[in-house]
Design a protein around this nucleic acid. Structure first.
Length: 256
DNA sequence: ATGGTCGGCTTCCGA
């Protein structure tokens, strides 16, 4: 089973690139973030016509997550539990062939300190609680998406340049590490322990041309999923295409 | 060198 994740930075702006990539990605389930589309204006037919089943969770203008799958998903759940007043569309779960898959777009949090950073940390605490429930289920589970967390110094081109950024602050990294200590496996680092594994290059300052990237799109695998981990990778070439997203797809394969 | 560039129900905001 192949599961991919891709922050597309606007489904309508990315339509040709996304359709092209979906045709070659060979994924059974695709987790998408930053749809920037409401559900009732989502270009469903473009994807359904190519055989994808869609579960979207959008909002106007910003955020938005979706699960695309070759077979219909079971038990789809929208929204991260823990705050009924939170109206931002950043989380969706579904089950594919017994594997629970959570797709998230974790808050950016900049500028820090400030209310946006407080929201990020509160969201990560809610995620910790949901992740603990998922572990307790002992079902094979994958949490993936744009975490907006640079876990380690080697995950950015110039750590000093990111010291005061909400993606790299000690509290942010500690909250991510707390997730890992629960028992989750960082699948991309598991398969690629050395070297750059960048997944994002800013549109500004020629970041792609200079390879000034960061690793913020992750796959966390429960023990039951990690036992089945075969491979993981990053479709880096997507960043060099015309009208590319600022993120590239990441993926894992699990044995059946 | 406080710039630069995307996307969105755009004329600012979020990233």
């Amino acid at each position: 089973m192949k599961i991919a994740s891709f922050n597309i930075n606007g489904v309508k702006a990315r339509l040709p690139r996304l359709l092209e990539w979906l045709d070659i990605c060979e994924a059974d389930v695709v987790c998408l973030q930053e749809l920037k589309s409401m559900d009732d204006s989502f270009p469903r037919l473009e994807f359904e016509g190519r055989g994808w089943h869609l579960e979207t969770h959008g909002q106007k203008g910003f955020n938005g997550v979706a699960l695309f799958s070759r077979e219909p998903l079971q038990d789809v759940r929208r929204g991260l539990p823990g705050d009924d007043s939170d109206e931002q569309a950043r989380y969706i779960e579904g089950t594919h062939k017994g594997v629970r898959i959570a797709c998230l777009y974790l808050p950016n949090g900049n500028p820090a300190p400030g209310p946006k950073y407080d929201y990020k940390l509160a969201w990560m605490e809610r995620l910790r609680k949901r992740a603990a429930e998922l572990l307790d289920s002992e079902q094979p589970t994958v949490i993936t998406g744009d975490f907006n967390v640079i876990p380690m110094e080697k995950d950015c081109y110039d750590p000093a340049a990111w010291l005061n950024d909400a993606l790299f602050l000690p509290q942010t990294r500690a909250a991510f590490q707390t997730l890992l200590y629960q028992g989750w496996t960082d699948a991309i680092r598991q398969i690629h322990p050395q070297g750059d594994c960048f997944t994002f290059w800013d549109y500004q300052r020629g970041s792609w041309e200079k390879d000034h990237g960061i690793r913020i799109d992750h796959f966390l695998l429960s023990p039951q999923a990690a036992d089945r981990l075969q491979d993981a990778g990053i479709d880096r070439a997507q960043r060099g295409k015309e009208k590319a997203s600022d993120h590239v797809p990441v993926w894992v394969t699990l044995s059946d």
